[in-house]
């Protein structure tokens, strides 16, 4: 009632450079999801600007936002959001369907991304035939397939056990080492500890922006990743 306006985010001014690994933290209702939706072009700001890879996207129309999401951003979700009864390969290929990338490159890109997450041999498996960790890795491959400027991961380990969480986070670190920008939303400090930089939100405000003090670094090599899953 009344004219009181509630700002989900207020006075946020952040810059994330290429190659960063940022964890976005905060309790429920702190605004961290809204922040991610803004930079993920899933939602638009009411005031202010958002720049992605040099484009000012806050004034974009739905179609333009879709193109930005397709070309610049790779999403990883808590619930994986894979298409059921569809093979891993087809799932990974999905963003290419909406892209300008020529069809002749699709298979090569898809398989390369599946190999990057160590699921090359499982290309023809459907989600129901894969474990939770493997499903999330398919989702990560899908996020990588369009060669985005950043990966946005929203509670990517929320549905996984501790051991699998470690594997996924190691994979993110590995990808980051190779140059992929990663922005990770989580409310678990243990998960945030894998990132290089931590943003903490509270009540719509950014209350802390610091480098991770005791960064966890898991140097699990590829072979152990595969063997752990099997």
């Amino acid at each position: 009632m009344g004219e009181q306006t509630l700002w989900a985010l207020d006075g946020i001014d952040t810059i994330i450079e290429p190659g960063e690994f940022v964890a976005v933290m905060g309790p429920s209702g702190s605004g961290k999801s809204t922040y991610m939706n803004m930079i993920g072009c899933l939602d638009v700001v009411t005031e202010g600007q958002v720049y992605i890879d040099g484009s000012e996207v806050s004034s974009f129309q739905p179609d333009e936002l879709a193109t930005i999401r397709n070309e610049k951003i790779g999403f990883v979700f808590q619930q994986f959001n894979l298409l059921a009864r569809t093979t891993a390969e087809e799932n990974v290929k999905l963003p290419l369907l909406y892209s300008q990338i020529p069809e002749s490159e699709w298979s090569e890109r898809t398989l390369k991304c599946l190999e990057q997450v160590d699921l090359g041999p499982r290309a023809d498996h459907q989600p129901s035939q894969l474990s939770g960790g493997q499903q999330q890795r398919v989702a990560i491959a899908r996020a990588l397939v369009n060669d985005p400027v950043m990966i946005l991961a929203d509670e990517p380990t929320g549905a996984l056990d501790t051991h699998t969480t470690e594997e996924i986070m190691a994979l993110f670190q590995e990808l980051n080492e190779k140059g992929t920008t990663i922005i990770l939303v989580t409310h678990e400090p243990e998960v945030a500890a894998y990132a290089k930089r931590q943003l903490i939100f509270r009540d719509g405000h950014l209350v802390s922006d610091e480098l991770t003090a005791n960064r966890v670094s898991l140097d699990i090599d590829n072979s152990s990743l595969v063997s752990n899953e099997q």
Binding site: D63, A66, R69, Q79, N81, L94, Y98
Partner: peptide, 14 residues
């Protein structure tokens, strides 16, 4: 959810 996902990975409303 499938529609949401397709939109997130770049599907336009059309």
């Amino acid at each position: 959810r499938e529609i949401g996902l397709r939109m997130a990975i770049g599907a336009k409303p059309d």
